[in-house]
Amino acid sequence: MISRYQRRKLVNLFNLGVAVLATIFGVFWLIWILWTTLRYGASSVNWALFTQDTPAPGSSGGGLRNAFVGSLILLGMAVAIGAPVGVLAGTWLAEFAARRKLGAMVRFLNDILLSAPSIVIGLFAYAIIVDPSGHFSAYSGGVALALILIPVVVRTTDEMLRLVPGSLREAAIALGTPYWKLVTRITWRASASGILTGVLLGIARISGETAPLLFTALNNQFWSTSLDHPIANLPMVIFQFAMSPYTNWQQLAWAGAFVAVAFILLLSLVARLIVRRGRGA
């Protein structure tokens, strides 16, 4: 018979052991997924991947040039729309509504939007742009991605601006600085790296989004840079190619997945470094 004390120690040891196993369990999937994309994807990365367009079904060769360019166009549109809107809305929250009920409510709704399913955002973009205009288009995809980017930027801008010490604002106001100048010249500047981090994280978030593009930008097997037509993009091409029975297509899907993951990890890393440097300074 073991004593009560020994039993408590055993229970403790067992449960802490389980906690360690849980951590290993979590990290294990990360390593497995990264290793898979590296193993299947890196070997397929070659020059043709960036210089040739997506091949026809069943044919060999080809690349993902149109998908890369399409994705960059979509990202560019999303940032062009989403970053200014997000920064402005975040500025309002931090600078003009910090202690107001309305501000708290907007912050609350923004957080909901942040976690809203991306497929619903896609359906929304379909309902307000694709359906009225009668055809799928690159710009509707850009709008859908912008809607996902905005809450990320709003939140980080809000948080970063609120970290700016109040004494800085008071000093500026004491000098007679108008409020808009205070925000644009002082608080924005003080939190520039933080706001940039928010935009980078937002880009990382949307660059792999597929669901909102299903009903908006769709996909395009050919080279197209027209904003008024369906446009090829990396996530949709990966979706289509990975589901296909053709080995060449699957190979390209892995290569695309590898590039996408590398791009996103790089962005996250840069964002982390910016935050760390900002904290150190």
């Binding site: 999937w29 996530p235 997945a257 993951v261």
Partner: peptide, 12 residues
């Protein structure tokens, strides 16, 4: 784990 896009999870 949260940064990896869901399409990669799906494919994997």
């Amino acid at each position: 784990l949260a940064a990896i896009p869901s399409i990669i999870y799906g494919m994997w």
